[in-house]
Design a protein around this nucleic acid. Sequence first.
DNA 1: ACCTTCGGGACGCCCCGTTTCT
DNA 2: AGAAACGGGGCGTCCCGAAGGT
Lengths: 187, 187, 187, 187
Amino acid sequence: MPRVSEERLAARRQQILSGARAAFARHGYEGATVRILEEEIGLSRGAIFHHFPDKSALFFALARADADAMAATVAAHGLVQVMRNLVEKPDAGWLGIQLEISRRIRTDVTFREAWAERGRTINSATRTRLQRQKEAGVLRSDVDVEVLANYLELFLDGLISRLAAGEPVDRLGPVLDLLEGTVRLRR
Amino acid sequence: MPRVSEERLAARRQQILSGARAAFARHGYEGATVRILEEEIGLSRGAIFHHFPDKSALFFALARADADAMAATVAAHGLVQVMRNLVEKPDAGWLGIQLEISRRIRTDVTFREAWAERGRTINSATRTRLQRQKEAGVLRSDVDVEVLANYLELFLDGLISRLAAGEPVDRLGPVLDLLEGTVRLRR
Amino acid sequence: MPRVSEERLAARRQQILSGARAAFARHGYEGATVRILEEEIGLSRGAIFHHFPDKSALFFALARADADAMAATVAAHGLVQVMRNLVEKPDAGWLGIQLEISRRIRTDVTFREAWAERGRTINSATRTRLQRQKEAGVLRSDVDVEVLANYLELFLDGLISRLAAGEPVDRLGPVLDLLEGTVRLRR
Amino acid sequence: MPRVSEERLAARRQQILSGARAAFARHGYEGATVRILEEEIGLSRGAIFHHFPDKSALFFALARADADAMAATVAAHGLVQVMRNLVEKPDAGWLGIQLEISRRIRTDVTFREAWAERGRTINSATRTRLQRQKEAGVLRSDVDVEVLANYLELFLDGLISRLAAGEPVDRLGPVLDLLEGTVRLRR
DNA sequence: ACCTTCGGGACGCCCCGTTTCT
DNA sequence: AGAAACGGGGCGTCCCGAAGGT
């Protein structure tokens, strides 16, 4: 029996996640000290740890939400669209989180294990969509879907890396065109 | 002039850098505590900080050495060769350091400023070489050198990211072929 | 005059005290965090601190109740009877509270001062009763009442200590017989 | 290969243990915060935790040392002598530690398990000595050795409890005489 | 009135990078 | 070059008061 309205709760969680996103993106996971989180979020430790058990859970919630959203976009519009969105409106928060996710996969066993399956969701969404597009004759047919998927995924990682590093966006439009030209069927 | 001790000195520095590389790569910059560094290097704090003023200098020396080596390879054989080497013999240490460099650029103002010029060295090496290749008729001519350079750099970042994440190497050969096909002149 | 609600009030207080007793006994005063109290009592912070101003008051109420009860038993049946009851039906809650009381007397100035007079109540009850028994010829007469009182008090403290430590009860019956033999008049 | 002399190390450990003893005795285990330990010991956190892995290890070392010393005294001169020493020269530090040991046995599972065997050492020393004394005809023969041992142990616990509570020593001499009279052979 | 949830911020322990002593 | 010492600061817990709901 929720004594406090469901919405208020959700709003608070959102406020916390939102501030945490900024903090993690700007300072990195380790660099985002609880003190910094407090300031960015605008709430005290007590409040933050009342809604999330600990710092890592806070980060995980963020990572999970982003992964879900991305999986949905990939399934609906493909990886290239994810990249176009990124170039059109780069979100420093989102980018930072992505980077921190891959870093934590590398350095933190606990996180790696907890994450494991998450990663596969997006991967399979990508492959499913590419396969369908190939059958529809949109993709070039001389290259294996698996290779194309790897190509795109690798490219996305590179894009994230460079955008997060502050690479100016305007140079990247033509780069994406080149990518799309590589992947699509040539007339 | 004590020649022997100079060699010893260099060897010690090398031992320290080598251990530090492994530690930074495996645990990340923050995760590589001085205690972990001691263990990985096989020397005590006293020894380590006798040769390097502090932890950040140790990391910086590593980063600088790798950047220099890469700039040389790029100038001599091009970015694609860097990638081929990487796929052929991925060095977890090197990969980790690269990732940590870009992370520190993002999150640590001091490092960003200290690094600044380093980055440009490789960039200009890349562009110089591409320009020469274009003139030699090896590169496709319908795309600007700047765009190609960006394309390749972005791709390298993506490659580093995925290799560091443990992506199996055997899938990446065809991906590199695809990349090279995109960049070279089509008959 | 609302009789029903007064009963309810007393029942609630009793529920709280009872749960708190278990928590304090099992975890010690500091170890019994408010969270543990909540779980043991089955009510939330708000409820608990609605009836008691704070954690220390909760403990104090418990301590006071036990001291009163013990003073009454001592006056009526003597210290040895308190021990017999203890051996017959050891109450882990009661034992724990006794131990925590003496601990807080030792370590917490505030508590020590607040408790002060409490202790004397039992002491004088003991002496009064012993004096009367001596006059009645039940006690051995070659030893001062004050010494006997100290002997018994010390013994009770030892008994509490060992019972709380989980010492098996069955070994203690003969020990108490020995004690009683020491104190009573020898034929 | 110890770069620092064995004695210095031992002296430091002793300094730390000695300060910690005072702190634990005066404030109790939980009450002895690291800050208080620092002040009492006269060293910083860094130094303390350089010699002991954590607070609980510090306490355990203390407890172990005292238990060993007591076992030795018991084996050599018996439990009663331990008590006489105590009454003659009560050591607030030692008393406090004893009390905290029994408290931690009660409230901390980890400690209880780690301690387990320690307790038995003293117990068997007591029984061995009593048995020998009985055979030598010093002890009363109408009571089982096991009962006498329990009697004495219980009494010691009581003595510790009251001494730690600040009970004046001068009243306890006759009490000990009474105890000894109870245990020895009557002519 | 009674109870729950939320929020605050002081403080607990210990780890960290660094400096100083041997 | 290693061991010892330092003290700032990390995260998370703790107790409690305030806000809100029934």
